[in-house]
């Protein structure tokens, strides 16, 4: 079937079987491998993308169900070569080690800050509670999201160079 959606602002149309999951559509058919694929059982959250602005586990959504919807992946976080404050925060506060969980974590953080620009630590922990990180112990992820909350203009506000 023909599947059309907006991905990171671009209108795309591709041919895919109805049984293709959104995560594989994004990774294999669109070649956007920033979205990771882990447990395959709706538990780990590394496959999280934003669908109409809300985090969803893309291993548990059919590409066909995303037809006509707006999808944002980690590739769509930086704009015009400038990192999103969330990405900058993960750099500043060491929010990742292996990086496997990071795309999903950052997209959930983006969606949280869009709704609640000043979350407390508990709200951040709650927002990412459906996503597993086996490296950081979460403390640095929470600090990274707080960094982004404190610097809504991102690196521009710090006056530092961005190595993006």
């Amino acid at each position: 079937m023909q599947i059309s959606m907006t991905v990171n602002g671009d209108e795309i149309t591709r041919e895919a079987e109805p049984r293709v999951l959104l995560v594989h559509f994004i990774r294999e058919i669109l070649g956007l491998t920033g979205t990771h694929w882990g447990c395959d059982t709706s538990n780990c959250g590394t496959c999280v993308v934003l669908m109409d602005g809300l985090p969803v586990k893309s291993c548990t959504v059919l590409a066909a169900m995303a037809d006509g919807h707006d999808i944002r992946t980690v590739e769509g976080l930086a704009t015009g070569g400038v990192l999103d404050p969330v990405q900058q925060g993960f750099m500043e506060e060491h929010g990742l080690q292996c990086g496997f969980c990071t795309p999903g974590m950052m997209l959930t953080a983006r969606a949280l800050l869009d709704r609640n620009p000043h979350p407390d630590d508990d709200q951040i922990r709650e927002a990412i509670s459906g996503q597993i990180c086996r490296c950081t112990g979460y403390a640095t992820i929470v600090r990274s999201v707080q960094w982004a909350a404190e610097h809504p203009a991102g690196a521009a506000a710090t006056g530092e160079e961005v190595n993006a």
Binding site: S42, T60, V61, E126, S129
Partner: peptide, 9 residues
């Protein structure tokens, strides 16, 4: 119930 991401769907 599940987690906030699952609850979105």
């Amino acid at each position: 119930i599940a987690d906030p991401v699952v609850r979105n769907r």
